[in-house]
């Protein structure tokens, strides 16, 4: 019982501590990076249960802001190898379990 209690507590701790956006890889300039990151956070929070919608929102917003063509992948587990335009890639983790990869390639 105690063990499970602790486990729960740990889980809560984990969720609380690991909710911040963590950028794993990016080659964007500072300003763009911050904007993109915020957009990803907003989208993931808005569509917490629907990754597809979140990805769509991100893609559309990015297309508007930085020109086409953006591609977005959101998921809990995936592997990828992409070709992107230099200075237009962001790969980050969010919310402790989500990975978001945003890149541009027209």
């Amino acid at each position: 019982m105690a063990a499970t209690g602790e486990g729960k507590k740990e889980e809560a701790d984990y969720k609380r501590l690991h909710s911040f956006p963590l950028i794993r890889h990016t080659d964007m300039p500072e300003e763009m990076r911050v904007e993109t990151m915020e957009l990803c956070v907003t989208a993931c929070e808005k569509f917490a249960t629907n990754n597809e919608s979140a990805a769509k929102m991100i893609k559309e917003s990015m297309d508007k802001k930085f020109g086409s063509s953006w591609h977005v992948v959101i998921g809990e587990g995936f592997g990828f190898e992409v070709t992107h335009e230099v200075k237009n890639l962001l790969y980050m983790f969010f919310g402790g379990s989500l990975a978001v990869c945003v890149w541009k390639c027209s």
Binding site: Y14, L17, H18, L22, R24, H25, D27, G75, E76, G77, F78, G79, F80, E81, V82, T83, H84, E85, V86, L89, Y91, F93, G96, S97, L98, A99, C101, W103, C105, S106
Partner: peptide, 24 residues
């Protein structure tokens, strides 16, 4: 053509977890 680069990674739960722990 605009310069391009390749990037590849794998995202899964344990990697995400490790990354967060490391960061903290």
């Amino acid at each position: 053509p605009p310069p391009r680069a390749n990037f590849s990674a794998t995202a899964n739960q344990w990697e995400i977890y490790d990354a967060y722990v490391h960061e903290l």
